[in-house]
Amino acid sequence: MGKILVTGATGNVGSHVVAQLASAGIDVRAFARRPERVRPGVEAVQGDLTAPETLEPALKDVESVFLLWPGLSTGNAAEVVSAIAGHARRVVYLSAFVPGGSGGHYGEIEGLIRRSGLGWTFLQPGGFAANTLGWADQVRQGVVRWPFGQASRALIHEKDIAAVAVHVLTSAGHNGAAYAITGPDELTQAEQVRVIGEVVGREVRWEEQPPEEARERLLAAWGDEAFVDSALKAWESFVAGPERATDTVRRLLGRPALSFRQWVEDHAEDFR
Rank of each mutant, 00 (worst) to 15 (best):
I196V: 14
V195F: 01
Q192Y: 00
E186W: 00
E186R: 12
E198T: 02
T188E: 04
A180Q: 13
Y179G: 01
N175P: 02
S171L: 02
A177H: 14
P184F: 08
I181P: 01
G197H: 05
N175Y: 10
V195H: 07
A180M: 13
Y179V: 07
V164N: 07
I181G: 02
I181Q: 01
T182D: 03
V166H: 11
T188M: 05
V164S: 09
E198K: 10
D185I: 01
V193L: 05
L169P: 10
A190G: 10
T170K: 12
A163Q: 14
I196L: 06
A165Y: 12
A178P: 00
I196Q: 01
Y179N: 01
S171I: 09
T182R: 02
A180D: 13
A163D: 14
D185A: 01
R194L: 09
T188N: 05
V164E: 11
L187F: 00
D185F: 03
V195L: 13
R194D: 11
T188I: 06
T188D: 03
V164P: 11
V168F: 06
A180N: 11
A172I: 13
G197L: 04
L169K: 10
A165D: 08
A163P: 04
G197K: 04
T170W: 09
Y179D: 02
H167Y: 13
V193D: 03
G173S: 13
H174F: 15
H174R: 09
A178V: 03
V166I: 12
D185Q: 07
V164D: 10
E198F: 05
E186S: 05
R194F: 07
P184V: 07
A163R: 15
A180Y: 15
L187Y: 00
V193W: 01
Q189W: 04
E191V: 04
T182A: 02
V166T: 14
T188L: 02
Q192H: 10
A178C: 06
P184W: 05
V195S: 05
E191Q: 15
G183S: 01
A165M: 13
S171P: 08
T188R: 07
E198P: 04
L169H: 11
G197D: 05
Q189V: 05
P184C: 06
V166N: 09
G173W: 13
A178Q: 09
A165V: 11
V164M: 08
Q192G: 07
A178N: 06
Y179H: 15
Q189F: 09
T170C: 11
L169C: 11
Y179T: 00
E198M: 04
